[in-house]
């Protein structure tokens, strides 16, 4: 390979690599500077969940929300991210284990919506629709984890699944209690039968 051909190849490769990776400085080429701050906050959460990280994430999300007010699709995901951040901050270790997964997923999609300018409107809506669906599912799971309200026992019973009921029926204490009730009822029935027989005998004696 002669020198001219080689230098042309090198130049072509470098140009293609520059096109593909940007200017090689990675994150600094981002069109939205505060997205990088949000990314940093989200990655911090991936590493360690602290109040400071969550506050950073919420602050950066709110900054972006004002920036994307005109873009309802991105704005919806940002609102969702803020909601998730608020939830994790309030519930801390008691948060649903999938909450952080949702934070990561919502952020990844926000990044896609902001960076990928070639996405069609339909594709953008699909991304949001999927996230909303996943968010609703998480919300339902969170609701189902909540303890029953006082004074509403019927609601608690109605949320039991057939599997819960089967497990309850198999429990040895439940079985013991059932046996005790059966024994007591049996004894009472025996006593009632004896009383009935005695009364029948008295009646027969009176008739004769």
């Amino acid at each position: 390979m002669d020198k001219t051909a080689k230098s042309k190849l090198v130049s072509d490769i470098e140009s293609q690599l520059d096109d593909f990776f940007g200017d090689g400085l990675g994150d600094t080429s981002s069109p939205t500077p505060s997205l990088e701050k949000l990314k940093s906050a989200v990655l911090s959460i991936d590493w360690e969940i602290t109040d400071a990280c969550l506050s950073d994430m919420i602050t950066e999300t709110e900054l972006l929300m004002s920036h994307f007010e005109e873009d309802p699709v991105t704005h919806a995901l940002l609102r969702m991210l803020r909601g998730l951040g608020d939830y994790v901050r309030k519930r801390k270790a008691r948060s649903h284990p999938d909450a952080i997964k949702r934070v990561m997923s919502v952020f990844a999609n926000i990044e896609t919506l902001i960076n990928d300018t070639h996405l069609e409107k339909r594709q953008r809506k699909n991304i949001v629709a999927k996230e909303i669906q996943a968010f609703k599912k998480l919300k339902q799971q969170v609701e189902s984890q909540k303890p029953p309200l006082r004074g509403a026992p019927s609601q608690a019973i109605s949320t039991q699944t057939p599997a819960d009921v089967a497990a309850l029926l198999e429990h040895h204490k439940f079985k013991q209690a059932m046996n005790a009730v059966e024994e007591r009822l049996g004894a009472e029935m025996k006593s009632l039968k004896a009383q009935v027989q005695s009364l029948q005998k008295q009646l027969a004696a009176l008739r004769s």
Binding site: M1, E14, F21, G24, G26
Partner: peptide, 25 residues
């Protein structure tokens, strides 16, 4: 922090393609 991650990858890709071309030539 991503410092010099992309330049490393770019250099590796370009060196590999050039080496491949040298082998084929």
């Amino acid at each position: 922090r991503g410092e010099n991650v992309i330049p490393t990858a770019k250099k590796a890709i370009s060196a590999t393609i050039i080496s491949l071309q040298d082998h084929l030539a």
